[in-house]
Nucleic acid binder design. Structure first.
Length: 362
DNA sequence: GACGCGTGGCG
DNA sequence: TCGCCAAGCGT
């Protein structure tokens, strides 16, 4: 009885998916899929890592850029880490880029440049967790893996009206997904569930009237789909303060440094800053600057990270004698676009030098 | 299990 | 305006 019901779910969902197929750069065309082709594992893996906690819109240009520059996983494995970090700059969660490089190196060195085709073997690679291993196994290798991301969690908790709070409900959700994942077209099933969550079963104001499950959904029967999934209240975001120093020499070069490989913005490039503390220690001007100079205040920029809000006072000084710094390097302003500068650093530099960066096109 | 970890878009 | 949050992973 239950098996018959779930088969019905699959038909509803895959029917909807075939009618609403989204043309994304990492997917193969429906005619190719109909011929039994699967997407390139390298493309699937690269897109899935980029899509971790990141919107399709933001990922598209980065995916195209990476694929054009490093057409195969071996090309990526052989690339200089600094170039990979610079190409990732702006996309966020930079540990993903560090692990992306490590994963490519592992595939090249330990798997002959060929991605392993099982969920378990994929799960052992750097940066590949429960979600990504299942997604790559299902989408690239046609494995019957239970793919659970934030979209699927939302769809499943609504479909079955699961009232257990997150993240405690994850095992139950995984079990439900495993129960309804078909042996036939598991990759399409996974992508259909995620597309449904992204376009119909949205966090706010879901379009239930258009949903293929609207005759089955228990949360809709309760007239409260927005109530699912149940989540615990979040903590308040603390504020941290600091100062950033835009140092320019007489050749129009700016002083840059590389951050430690671990932690916040790990491995990325920055301008000199003070520590980011919960209160102002000293006046955050000349005393905390990287060198003595005629520092001029340029205003304050605010940047919100995952777990705190940062307010940076920006200072600028010109015509500095370059050898007065004993760490970092002096980079011509014309080369700023090619640096591994995270968005918060671009904001600080732009505050002091409005025309520092070339606007992105497309 | 809880926390650290970016960014940009949207209502 | 501003809080929410998006195809999670590592520790």
């Amino acid at each position: 009885m239950r098996h018959v019901k779930m088969t019905y779910h699959n038909k509803l969902l895959l029917g909807w998916y075939d009618r609403h197929h989204r043309d994304l750069p990492w997917r193969i065309s429906p005619p190719m899929a109909a011929r039994g082709q699967s997407a390139d594992p390298y493309h699937v893996w690269l897109s899935e890592v980029m899509l971790q906690q990141t919107t399709v819109q933001a990922v598209k240009p980065y995916f195209q850029k990476f694929l054009a520059r490093w057409p195969t996983v071996v090309d990526l494995a052989n690339a200089p880490t600094e170039e990979v970090m610079a190409a990732w700059a702006g996309l966020g969660y930079y540990a993903r880029a560090r692990n992306l490089k490590k994963c490519a190196e592992a595939v090249a060195a330990d798997h002959n440049g060929i991605f392993p085709d099982t969920e378990e073997a994929l799960r052992a690679l750097p940066g590949i967790g429960d979600y990504t291993s299942a997604a790559v196994a299902a989408i690239a290798f046609n494995r019957q893996a239970a793919v659970v991301d934030g979209n699927v969690e939302r769809v499943i908790t609504r479909l079955f009206a699961i009232t257990d709070a997150m993240p405690g409900a994850k095992p139950l959700i995984k079990a439900k997904v495993a129960m309804i994942t078909p042996k036939d077209r598991p990759g399409d099933f996974a992508q259909a569930m995620m597309d449904l969550g992204a376009t119909i079963c949205t966090p706010k104001r879901p379009a239930c009237v258009l949903c293929p499950f609207n005759g089955e959904c228990l949360a809709l029967k309760l007239h409260d789909p927005e109530h699912f999934p149940v989540k615990a209240a979040k903590k308040a975001k603390p504020v941290r303060l600091g100062a950033a120093y835009i140092a320019l020499d007489d050749q129009n070069r700016i002083l840059l440094r590389k951050r430690e490989d671990k932690g916040l913005l790990g491995g990325m490039t920055e301008v000199p800053t003070t520590e980011w503390t919960s209160r102002i220690d000293g006046d955050h001007t000349d005393a905390s600057a990287p060198m003595a100079a005629d520092w001029r205040a340029c205003g304050v920029i605010t940047h919100v990270f995952t777990h705190f809000e940062l307010r940076l006072s920006v200072f600028r000084a010109d015509n500095i004698t370059a050898n007065t710094s004993n760490h970092g390097w002096w980079e011509p302003l014309a080369n700023l676009d090619a640096q591994a500068l995270p968005t918060v650093m671009k904001k600080a530099i732009t505050q002091a030098i409005p025309q520092a960066f070339t606007p992105e096109k497309g």
